[in-house]
Design a protein around this nucleic acid. Sequence first.
DNA 1: GGTTGACTTAAAGTATACTTGAAGTTATAT
DNA 2: ATATAACTTCAAGTATACTTTAAGTCAACC
Lengths: 144, 144
Amino acid sequence: MPTATEPHYTIGAFAKAVGLTAPTLRYYETEGLIEPHRLTNGRRYYEEADINWVKFLLHLKGTGMSISELKQYVQWRAQGDATIPQRLALLQQVKADFLVQFNEVQHHLQILNDKINWYEEKEAGLTADQENFHAYLQRLEHHE
Amino acid sequence: MPTATEPHYTIGAFAKAVGLTAPTLRYYETEGLIEPHRLTNGRRYYEEADINWVKFLLHLKGTGMSISELKQYVQWRAQGDATIPQRLALLQQVKADFLVQFNEVQHHLQILNDKINWYEEKEAGLTADQENFHAYLQRLEHHE
DNA sequence: GGTTGACTTAAAGTATACTTGAAGTTATAT
DNA sequence: ATATAACTTCAAGTATACTTTAAGTCAACC
């Protein structure tokens, strides 16, 4: 039940507060990621602390965790401190996968940058002899 | 037609060379991203230069470009140098979007790291007074 | 007190990027 | 020569993460 000192949110207000839509919040709820309280008339309400929780979930999601991985994490969390090793192992695996991906996208960015520079030089008429992009990359020693 | 000095690939061999599957290559072809040659019996064959092309497409894809954006890029490319400004603008927009995402995921990583450290300290019994994660983040001045 | 907007559930639909299946042809290996 | 593996097309199926629709209830404002 809401109190005067602890402001609460309808699903619409809460959706705005966390940057999601009401249907998405309901979907996350069916997936077990969130458990809002209910007013006596059946309507959901969310509290301030739920904002931190959803934002944390979105950070995890942003590192590449799927909804089902988040669900597993949340289930372990509900089981108490005994599951901390499992949760820690999951997050460490997520981090390891993330770092692999992170290195890959940095390389993708490098090639994108190289292509942009190549076009800019071509537009400026600076690539003297119509050097193609592959040769350009090799000159920069940016392989693949 | 293949020559002796320019090795060519069947779809299966080419798929291995670029790290995709044969069905994915056919799918990319229907999307207009690749245009392999055909042997007289109707079978596709790919040349060495096609490897660079597909790898380049995969780099662009890795920066966040969708198949339909890649298709647009490829169509412009087929229209010749007159479309270089459009291609450049597209890639610059992709880069700008990428950099926004990149900053966001770095923040996601920071929170993931913080959570892992928090669990590790908790496991080691180092968090003296059961400091919760939100308080821990605030102590580190890692907001949200 | 009535209209408008927000809420409720459940189920169906959407977008993206493939993946798989079916039915058939062609190459390669023993 | 025959079996197996790789290829062909076209259509249908899959996974993920929502989004939309339908049918109805409830709340706030003038």
